[in-house]
Design a binder for these strands. Structure first.
Lengths: 237, 237
DNA sequence: GCGCAAAAAATCGTATACAATTTAGCCGTC
DNA sequence: GACGGCTAAATTGTATACGATTTTTTGCGC
């Protein structure tokens, strides 16, 4: 039995149905960049990988398509989403639109222990940045997103939290595709600045920092149309 | 053959798979309040109603659960969502957070023909308000939401548009549950005011109006906890 | 060798079948 | 008459089966 199948046993939350576990497993793989954009996810393959029927594999893929992490083409199958530059811009535009509002909500109801939790996240992030190895890189990617998701969770609005879940996950895909700087942590210190501003109750400053932080992430992208991977374009430059 | 099954034939978009058509049909029924919150949607019943297998019925119900219009409990089945007062507050909080941003985006790129389109919507809304009959009421509900969705579409961000789709649909459920005033059109004139402000390029004013408009809708709700329909609470008052 | 048509394989869309769980009814006991 | 457990019916969870569509391979003529 392979490791993917084993992974399912580990999270034996009885309230979660099989398809949901598979969905979560694949989502993690996409967000942590173990699955590249454009990778074909055939229903049979996914089913075999997790030792379940195509029925469950299909349900999981459908779910991921609602989140925009997988694109399914009728009669052609499912693929890890390959966001276009325009989609990428929309994702970051949405984040610039949403996150300041979430930040205000979060700052208004944040407790000292939650501030402590945020600082803990920052520490963890720093630790991962200094570490080397692919495992650390993957954990770092996730940790960077977790900062934004934690703020959303503190805001107390589970609907906005779900929207942010989607946007952060899709951002990870975009960065995998169009990111330039090898150091994905370019914005880590900005996280710290935002926490500081929250602590000082300087909401305007915090929002300002947040908007710029998102803009910085986007500025690190090279959002030029790439026609398929490994085409003529790759050679006759 | 019943009318629901016929309804499927009408929208013969070959790109839409069967489950999607059923999903859309049920969604419309929920948004137009032909299905009440809490109604049980058994997979077999849905399948029979649309003359398809449980497979497709299940897929449609799953899809609706991702949109928050249907809640599915493991091993217990699917029900038309019965949003709690807290959920209702979150929905409107999310709209207050999102819609001003969408409005700014939309106003920045709106064309004269799109302004014309918005005014057309307002006229249509007025017409429906003056008409009587349940059909007109349902159309009015949809038209009222369409105003907000059209703004989202003008904003050009398809991700935010999808978020708004969900929020507007769920708002309709909330109003069905907790709405007080018989006249759901209490906020119609506010739509007109917003368009006027957009036309004058007075963005701040438009946003201000929008936030208050949403607040007005929410203020018309009686967000007190109702324990199930037809419980003791209904008698020993 | 290259292009193109037809056959073969792979993959998806949907229906049906069976297992597992929940719900409802029934009956005996207190 | 109310309560608790047992059985049967209904409903969901998952697997398998089959037809339809797409993709790949094959084979032929040029």
């Amino acid at each position: 039995m392979n490791s993917a199948a084993n992974a399912l046993q580990t999270t034996d939350d009885p309230t979660e149905t099989g398809a949901q576990q598979i969905r979560d497993a694949i989502r993690d793989a996409i967000v942590e960049r173990r699955l590249s954009p454009g990778t074909k996810l055939s229903e049979s393959d996914v089913g075999n990988l997790f030792n379940v029927s195509r029925t469950l594999a299909r349900a999981a893929l459908q779910a991921l398509s609602y989140e925009g992490l997988v694109s399914v083409a009728k009669n052609r199958g499912a693929f890890v989403a390959y966001p276009s530059p325009d989609e990428a811009r929309q994702i970051f535009a949405a984040r610039r639109l949403i996150e300041p509002g979430i930040l205000r909500e979060a700052a208004a109801r944040i407790t000292p222990s939650e501030i402590q939790h945020l600082k803990q996240l920052l520490l963890e992030e720093s630790r991962l940045i200094s570490e080397r190895g692919q495992t650390a890189r993957r954990a770092e990617i996730k940790a960077s997103g977790d900062f934004h998701l934690t703020l959303a969770s503190i805001s107390g609005n589970s609907i906005m939290q779900r929207f942010m879940d989607e946007l952060v996950a899709r951002s990870s895909l975009v960065i995998a595709l169009y990111g330039q700087s090898t150091i994905s942590s370019c914005g880590h210190s900005e996280h710290g600045d935002i926490v500081s501003a929250i602590e000082r109750k300087d909401l305007d400053r915090a929002c300002h920092l947040m908007v710029h932080h998102i803009a910085h992430i986007e500025a690190d992208l090279d959002l030029r149309e790439r026609k398929g991977q490994g085409l003529k374009e790759a050679f006759d430059l």
